[in-house]
Design a protein around this nucleic acid. Structure first.
Lengths: 129, 129
DNA sequence: ATGCATCCTGTAGTAACTACAGAAGCAAGT
DNA sequence: ACTTGCTTCTGTAGTTACTACAGGATGCAT
């Protein structure tokens, strides 16, 4: 059995976050030692890592939970997984488009600054009606 | 004088958000009518729009406030504005890099799904140690 | 016995809003 | 005058996914 600090190191999920997941019912309540300390099995470390990987890919916590449940389901759940993945990909691409436009607008604004004149082109742009 | 609903329409900032800005001291407390309703002048609409524009460019609220203060300052503040702009641009570009990687990883994962076989490549990838 | 690291629970804070509830005001039509 | 319906008011709580304590208990090595 593994204590929470080691579980954190093994899974990459911070101690506070592991406790938070337990509080919120994202993961099951961990076993406790005689003195009340949490104890984790390999399976639970695995689960934490799975959730971590989903989160790193930008899935929301509810999505991560859904994926974990699908991964645990005995039946074939590939279609649902694909649907979740594609939906998320759509979101990511839309965010990407936004961010690209933003980068363009900002870099234009800032590049105009490099002329050391008296008025500020960037402030003017922000002021513009 | 303009009521809050009209101010919202003119500035693109929602009513609740305008009240929130006032509560938080982002903008000055608006004048009140005899019956206690907020009343806005053109200048205040302008200010709301300025802040809205900053927010749309992804500046934080504190940054937006700083930019507004710089815009109101009589002295030439172009350098400070440029510094804020460049710092923000750096953040945006770093976020953009992250999101591009994410898009790549996700689209690879999802594209593997299109083979209609029995096991799920995406779940396998999420499971992978 | 003494440190020191680790752990516990419980609470509050983060960013920037958003969403009510419950009451009051305003404007138009009858 | 009265009703209907829209707008506004204050105040509070909820959102996402954590993070950061405070104050105290436990475990382990010296």
């Amino acid at each position: 059995m593994i204590a929470i600090g080691e579980a954190s190191r093994l899974s990459g999920v911070s101690i506070e976050t592991i406790r938070y997941y337990e509080r919120e019912g994202i993961i099951a309540r961990a076993e406790r030692s005689a003195s009340g300390r949490r104890a984790y099995s390999d399976t639970e470390i695995f689960e934490l890592r799975f959730i971590k990987r989903c989160r790193d890919l930008g899935f929301s916590l509810p999505d991560a939970v859904a994926l974990r449940d699908l991964a645990d389901a005995p039946n074939n759940s590939c279609e649902t997984v694909e649907r979740l993945g594609r939906a998320h990909l759509t979101e990511v691409r839309s965010k990407l488009r936004e961010l690209r436009q933003l980068e363009k607008a900002l870099s234009e604004l800032v590049s105009n600054c490099a002329n050391g004149n008296n008025d500020c082109p960037m402030l003017d742009a922000l002021r513009a009606s």
